[in-house]
Structure formats: structure tokens, C-alpha cells
């Protein structure tokens, strides 16, 4: 069985969904962040792909495109010691409290 991302010839009878997805603002920012991190030398396409490809099958298939990118960028930033998972969790709670 090929790895989760390796989709060429993976059995699939689903019709191609031609509907376009209007990008949400957070997705647009994630899309841009990937390029910004690229410019800062904190990410390249191979690294981002490797991080996406290490997701387990269920996660890979259930996350949307930019959700996968977010998860992958987190992996790379944590690996490189730029931030820790605990810091992200804490910042998330802080933002969540601010929203309420």
C-alpha cells in the first residue's frame, strides 16, 4: 500500500468535484504564511510536504487543504525550535478567551 499522500492510481470512484472553494481569510493568510516562512528559510516545499505526508490516514483524509498546511507548518516550526506546542496551546486559549 502506498503512503497516505501518494494518490496516483489509488482506487477512487468518486466523480471529480468541479465546485470552486472561495478562500476564507484565514486560509489566505495560511497560504501566504507558507511563502513568508519560505523566504525566512524556515520552510521549503519538500519539508512542508514531508510534514503533511506524516499525517495518519484518517487525519489526512479528514482535514481540508489549509488545515493540513497549518498542521504541517506547526510541525516544522516546533521541530526547528521556533516555538513549542505548549506555547501554541496557550496562545490559542488566550485568543479564545479574547473572542468571548
Amino acid at each position: 500500500m502506498p503512503k497516505v499522500h501518494d494518490r496516483g492510481s489509488w482506487p477512487n470512484d468518486d466523480p471529480i468535484d468541479h465546485s470552486e472553494h472561495e478562500m476564507e481569510e484565514w486560509e489566505r493568510k495560511v497560504d501566504a504564511l507558507s511563502s513568508v516562512l519560505g523566504e525566512k528559510g524556515l520552510k521549503n516545499t519538500d519539508q512542508l510536504r514531508r510534514a503533511i505526508e506524516s499525517l495518519d490516514l484518517k487525519t489526512y483524509e479528514s482535514l481540508s487543504y489549509y488545515e493540513k498546511w497549518t498542521a504541517a507548518m506547526e510541525t516544522l516550526l516546533v521541530e526547528q525550535g521556533v516555538m513549542t506546542t505548549a506555547e501554541i496551546d496557550a496562545k490559542m486559549s488566550e485568543l479564545e478567551r479574547g473572542q468571548k
Binding site: 476564507e24 481540508s64 487543504y65 506547526e74 496562545k91 490559542m92 485568543l95
Partner: peptide
């Protein structure tokens, strides 16, 4: 196309914001 606007989106949108803030 991976565009499930379910529970994940809210979580990841916030997680992405947290990463950017850091």
C-alpha cells in the same frame, strides 16, 4: 476537495492565528 466546513475549520483557523501571533 478537502473542504469540510466542519468542526476542524474553527480549530485550525484559531491555531493558525496563534502560530502567527507567536
Amino acid at each position: 476537495n478537502g473542504h469540510n466546513h466542519g468542526d476542524n475549520a474553527e480549530y485550525y483557523a484559531l491555531r493558525a492565528e496563534a502560530i502567527q501571533a507567536l
